[in-house]
C-alpha cells in the first residue's frame, strides 16, 4: 500500500469518526424535548446579559457587627435593649448554624452566586449552606415552612437583584443592635434577640463597581422594629483558584460552649469529633 492510498484511508476513517461524533451530539437524547432546550438556551442567553455577579467569589469586608443608627425600636424592644447584658462568649459556638441574616454577615469564607434558569443560588462557604432565590415569579406561601435560610423569591430591578425572604425557624440569630465597645475593646458588642413570627428580609443586591458587591438589607419585624431597619454591607470580588468555594462542614466541638454557664471551654476531648485524625475519627462506628 503506497502512502497516497494510506492517506485516503486515514481521511475516510477520520471523516467517519467525525460524522459519528456529530450524529451523537445532534441526535435527541431519550426524553429530551428540543423546544424546551431552545427555551433554556434563550434563558441562559438572557442570564449572560445580566450583571456579572457570577465570576469568582465574594469576600465580606464590612465589620461583623456593623449595625449603624438610627434604629427605631418598638417599646418592648427598646426595653430589651436597655436591659441587654451580653454573654461572656459567642452564641455561635458548637457548630450551631446561625441562619439568616447572620450567616450572610459572618464572612471569613466567601460567598458564590450561581445562576440558573428560574433561580439564582448563593453558596455561603461559612456553614456551607446554599440559599435559593426563585426568579420564576412564584409567590411565597402565606405561612412558609420554617427554615434557617427562609424561602426566597427574587426579581431584577434594573441592575439590582431584589430578594424577598420569609419563613424562618425560631433558632435563627437576629442582631437587632450594637452596644458601644466594652472597656478595652475596639469594636462594638452585638445585641441579639429572638425574632417575631413575621420576620422578613428584603435584600437589594447590586454591583457598586465590578469588584464591589453591595447588599442593602431591610429587616421587617413588627415585634422589634417600629419602622423597618435598613443597613448596607459590602463584599469584594476575588478570582483564581485560591478563592474557589470549598466544603465547610462543622464537625468538631472540642471548643465547647456551655449554654448553662455561658462559658467556653477549650480542647474538651469528649466533645472532640472529627474524621481527620486517622483512626481517631468518631463520626462513624
Amino acid at each position: 500500500m503506497n502512502t497516497r492510498i494510506t492517506g485516503k484511508v486515514a481521511g475516510l476513517l477520520a471523516a467517519a469518526i467525525g460524522w459519528t461524533a456529530m450524529a451523537a451530539v445532534s441526535a435527541p437524547l431519550k426524553g429530551e424535548v428540543p423546544e424546551r432546550n431552545a427555551a433554556l438556551a434563550q434563558e441562559w442567553g438572557r442570564i449572560g446579559r445580566l450583571p456579572n455577579f457570577w465570576e469568582g467569589t465574594w469576600q465580606a469586608v464590612t465589620g461583623l457587627y456593623h449595625f449603624p443608627a438610627p434604629v427605631h425600636y418598638t417599646a418592648e424592644a427598646a426595653e430589651y435593649v436597655k436591659n441587654y447584658r451580653p454573654t461572656d462568649d459567642t452564641v455561635m459556638a458548637n457548630c450551631a448554624m446561625p441562619g439568616m441574616p447572620f450567616v450572610m454577615n459572618q464572612g471569613a469564607m466567601p460567598i458564590k452566586f450561581l445562576p440558573a434558569p428560574g433561580m439564582v443560588a448563593l453558596y455561603i462557604e461559612t456553614y456551607a449552606v446554599t440559599r435559593f432565590f426563585h426568579t420564576d415569579r412564584r409567590k411565597i406561601d402565606d405561612i412558609p415552612n420554617p427554615t434557617f435560610l427562609g424561602t426566597s423569591v427574587a426579581h431584577w430591578e434594573g441592575d439590582a437583584l431584589v430578594v424577598d425572604s420569609r419563613g424562618f425557624v425560631q433558632d435563627t440569630l437576629l442582631q437587632i443592635g450594637a452596644l458601644p465597645p466594652l472597656p478595652g475593646a475596639q469594636f462594638s458588642t452585638p445585641i441579639f434577640k429572638a425574632h417575631g413570627p413575621n420576620l422578613r428580609f428584603v435584600e437589594r443586591m447590586h454591583l457598586k463597581d465590578y469588584n464591589t458587591l453591595e447588599i442593602s438589607t431591610t429587616i421587617y419585624d413588627d415585634t422589634i422594629f417600629a419602622t423597618p431597619y435598613t443597613s448596607t454591607r459590602e463584599w469584594h470580588r476575588y478570582t483564581g483558584r485560591n478563592s474557589e468555594p470549598q466544603e465547610w462542614v462543622c464537625s468538631d466541638n472540642r471548643d465547647y460552649y456551655d449554654a448553662e454557664t455561658g462559658k467556653l471551654h477549650y480542647d474538651v476531648q469528649d466533645k472532640a469529633v472529627t474524621t481527620s485524625e486517622g483512626a481517631g475519627g468518631k463520626l462513624r462506628p
Partner: peptide, 21 residues
C-alpha cells in the same frame, strides 16, 4: 487582641468563639 474573635477583626470573621482564653 483581647476580646472575642468577632470583635477583633476589622472586617468579617469566623467569629466562632472568644479568644480571651
Amino acid at each position: 487582641c483581647v476580646l472575642a474573635l468577632a470583635t477583633l477583626w476589622s472586617g468579617p470573621t469566623p467569629a466562632h468563639h472568644s479568644f480571651a482564653h
